[in-house]
Amino acid sequence: MNFEHLLVVNDPDNPLVAPLTREELWFGLLCRAEDSRPFLPGLEACTILSRSDTELVRELRFGSAVIRDRVTLQPMEWVRFDTEHTDAHAGGSLTIGIEEPAPDTMVLRFHYRTTLTEQGVGDDVPYVEYVKSAYHQSDVDTLRVIRMIAESGRIQ
């Protein structure tokens, strides 16, 4: 399944939402790469196994479930999380990109690739829609946590 959606970060027509800079967004995405616990409910531990300037290999612990992933960074542009396929996890990827489609407008593009079929069949249809909804809610929460980080002044 490929699933993609946008979340508006800065909208000049909505003065109720404080704008974020690209640097604040990027810092928030780096925080998610370094330690995903505030971003993923149920995640008990996030251990960096190796790192380079543009890549991290991590081990994520959700109770007894252990998932390994590789995080690739294109600074100030995008971050990609590639989860390894195991017997306990189907694997897949999530890319989060920062885009500026118009002046003073910024969005985050979330693109998922999973092993789920694109179009559910029969009993799978509600499951595929549930997964898409869960991904969307997780992404809304990601932006909420990034806003909290920016408001706390941690980037300064």
Rank of each mutant, 00 (worst) to 15 (best):
E100W: 05
H89R: 05
A18C: 04
M1S: 11
F110V: 09
D11F: 05
Q137R: 11
R61C: 11
S138L: 09
R154A: 15
S133H: 10
A102E: 11
S138F: 06
H111E: 14
T72E: 14
L94E: 05
I146F: 01
E4G: 07
Y130T: 14
V121K: 03
D69T: 01
Q156Y: 06
T105D: 06
S138N: 11
E23R: 10
V140S: 07
D13F: 05
E24T: 04
D104Y: 14
R113M: 05
T117F: 07
F62P: 01
V140H: 11
Y127V: 15
R144V: 07
T95V: 09
R61F: 03
I98W: 04
G153N: 02
A45Q: 13
M148Y: 04
L40V: 11
P12R: 15
E24Y: 03
G28C: 06
R68T: 04
I98L: 10
G153D: 06
R80M: 08
A45Y: 00
V79Q: 06
C46S: 11
T142Y: 01
R61M: 03
H89P: 00
Q156L: 05
S64C: 01
F110Q: 05
T47H: 10
T142D: 15
D123G: 01
F81K: 05
E4N: 08
S50V: 09
I155K: 09
P12Q: 11
Y130C: 06
R51E: 15
V107C: 07
N14V: 00
T105Y: 00
G122S: 04
L16Q: 08
V66I: 15
E100V: 01
L143Y: 15
T117L: 10
L94K: 15
V8Q: 10
I155A: 12
H136Y: 13
R61W: 01
M76E: 15
H89N: 13
H85W: 10
V125M: 05
A65S: 09
D104S: 12
I146Q: 04
T72F: 15
H111K: 12
V79Y: 04
L7F: 01
I67W: 12
P15G: 06
T86M: 11
T117N: 12
A102L: 13
Q156N: 13
D123P: 08
W78Y: 02
S133K: 12
G153T: 10
P38M: 08
S64L: 15
L20C: 08
L56C: 02
E4H: 07
D69V: 02
R144Q: 14
V66T: 08
V57S: 07
L16F: 15
Q137G: 07
H136E: 02
G63F: 00
M106Y: 11
C46M: 03
G122H: 05
M1E: 03
A90Y: 03
F39A: 05
L30C: 14
R68F: 01
V17G: 09
M76N: 13
I96E: 04
W26H: 00
D35F: 02
V107W: 09
S52Y: 00
G120V: 03
F27Q: 07
A90I: 08
E151M: 07
R51N: 13
V131L: 13
A134V: 12
V66Q: 01
L60D: 14
V79P: 10
R147Y: 02
R51H: 11
S50H: 04
F27D: 12
V128S: 09
F39H: 04
S133C: 03
T21S: 15
L29R: 05
P19T: 03
D104Q: 13
L25V: 08
V8Y: 05
